[in-house]
Design a protein around this nucleic acid. Structure first.
Lengths: 190, 190
DNA sequence: AGAGTTCGACCGACCAGTCGGTTGAAGGGG
DNA sequence: CCCCTTCAACCGACTGGTCGGTCGAACTCT
């Protein structure tokens, strides 16, 4: 693996388990078998490390979302696919999500624009999908923005409890999420 | 207001907006019109401040939950009441929830037992309510633990987006949460 | 007087980031 | 085959600054 990616991965793991502030650059260096001084050969600043992690992470979710939203199918089908893709991606690298949701608050303002923008677009994408389902008569009328926030909260919360060696597979979790949430939105009596 | 409570409140606000680590004891002192040295007349350590905040917060949610769970009514009704109470409490002091969910990770292990215990009990309480609803035939069969985590994720996420001067009142948000989530669990065709 | 409260100077630990210097592999010329 | 140069990778000692926490003196109110 390329050194830069290796460092990013180690940082994500450490930020996840210890937290961003409790992790020193020495810790990260040690995790990849370097000394702190050498780390700065690859990394310009700790804050940039955090920013890069957050950015890479949200970019993946957004890419999935945009791809799926543009596919064929009813709003119900596409939203279900977004949910399952989200869970799959989260379970694949929960530590990245931790960094994004718990630590990205510490990305300094001037570095955070991209992250904020993509997050906003992802929220919007989900809300739009819900709004489309309401318009199409698939879902009962409700506030799409709140429904989207509700869904994303439920999904992202999983980074706090998902365990790779747990009782359920990512696919099982994904389908339970999709079933329950889509049932919650669906128009009754059809 | 008692000085101690005032300090706690100021700390919660600062931890919410700047984050625990980016907040100095000087900041907190200034917010309550004291100097740092004087703060230590009321507070034994910054970490204890954080622990106390987290503990007080989760204690409130747990107390609501236990009270409601013991009330009369179907699982559906009681779960609905828990959801609405949770939203009400969250909207009343979103900064406390921020501290609990984003920062309580930094409470040192030896001070965290109480917080962890109450959090666990709250999760369990919600899962039990869902399990009861399934047993009673109100809800369709599903994994109660995952459903509880899903619900609590959706609820707690609100601390990230709720704004007191926003479009919707806490009551409106609460009822949308309850409606959507209970519909998601409810047995179809009745 | 004296208990409760406040202050501000101070300390010590910690840590991000710097910098001068070392090493070893790759390449090139003779 | 060997010497010389170059350069990326790496090291470790150091620094500058920050911040949690301490302490004794001073002030205030009764």
């Amino acid at each position: 693996m390329a050194r830069a990616a290796e460092i990013l991965g180690a940082a994500a793991d450490l930020f996840h388990t210890r937290g961003y502030h409790a992790t020193t650059m020495d810790d990260i260096a040690q995790a990849v078998g370097l000394k702190k001084g050498s780390l700065y050969h690859y990394v310009t600043a700790k804050e940039v490390l955090l920013r890069t992690l957050a950015e890479e992470t949200i970019r993946g979710y957004l890419a999935d979302g945009e791809r799926i939203a543009a596919e064929d199918g009813s709003a119900t089908e596409r939203l279900g696919r977004v949910i399952e893709a989200h869970v799959r991606r989260l379970c694949d690298a929960p530590e990245r999500v931790t960094v994004l949701v718990r630590e990205s608050h510490y990305v300094p303002e001037d570095l955070a624009a991209e992250v904020r923008g993509m997050t906003h677009r992802y929220n919007h994408l989900v809300a739009d999908l819900i709004a489309a389902g309401i318009d199409a008569g698939e879902f009962q009328p409700t506030d799409p923005a709140v429904a989207a926030l509700m869904l994303l909260g439920a999904l992202n919360w999983a980074h706090r409890w998902y365990q790779a060696d747990g009782r359920l597979t990512p696919a099982e979790i994904g389908s339970q999420f999709a079933r329950t949430f889509l049932d919650g939105l669906r128009k009754r009596g059809e």
